[in-house]
Amino acid sequence: MSAASSWFSRHAQAAVAALGRLLRRPLGTLLTTVAIAIALALPAGLWVFTSNVRALTSKVTETLEISVYLQPGTALTAAEKLASEARRRKEVAKVVLVPADAGLEQFRRQSGFGAAIEALESNPLPHVLTVQPRESATDARSMSELRKYLSAQPDVDAVQVDTEWVRRLEAILYFLQVAFIALASVLGAGVVAVIGNSVRLEIGSRRAEIEVTKLVGGSNAFVRRPFLYEGFLYGLFGGLLALGLGTLVLAALQEPIAGVSALYGGRLGIEGLNADETLLLLLSGGLLGLFGAWVGAARHLARIEPRD
């Protein structure tokens, strides 16, 4: 047998042995797995919430518009030139020119002040450009830059854009992001602690075996290996259970959300984790478990080294 396949079979053996030990004490394994699953599911849930809010707001920002009022008396050709220049900017999705006459006509129809408008000698309305930014450019900074550009153009009288709520939304999303990182860090540390402790107890209960193994020439790496697999499996199982819990919660939420959605014209929906995020969750669980096992094993294994 080659060294590589021997190495592989040792690892496979350690992994199977670790799995066997976990399955032999199902209650303890289940309790630990549930603790890990909850610790993983909470940040994952916040992540799902945040990304759904972000998806929702990006739909809202599609309707975000900047109104550019030109100086009264500006020639229509100048307004058209301005519009086509604005269209060439990469952060601009769409520019609609509402000429003064069309504006007046629209106002006449919609306002009910028809008679009063008839009495006017000249059209008091200016040409208006309605600029719609691209979705990628709806953050506060891009918006204020676009606004600055538009304000600086000749013949522009006023630029009106309500960036306040965009800024508020961004602040909320930023807060959610920070909250996610904080929650994930704290609970990730919790996962490490739970698995580290469980591996530590396991090592304590198998002390005699470890001593004998080391006495017959087992290296620390050899002794540590099955515990590392155990930690990894704990984390992986925790991640799977977290996914299961998340799926249940989402399923329970579908109906109430559909109800809300109906009230808002069917625009709402909730998305779970995508494939990449699912993989990331499982991997995080496994790696946290591996790390926890390493931490739990390190001190114990050093104990039966020779002393000077």
């Binding site: 190495w7 193994t213 017959v216 087992g218």
Partner: peptide
Amino acid sequence: ALPLIVAD
């Protein structure tokens, strides 16, 4: 077998 297993 233990001493042989640890020695790969």
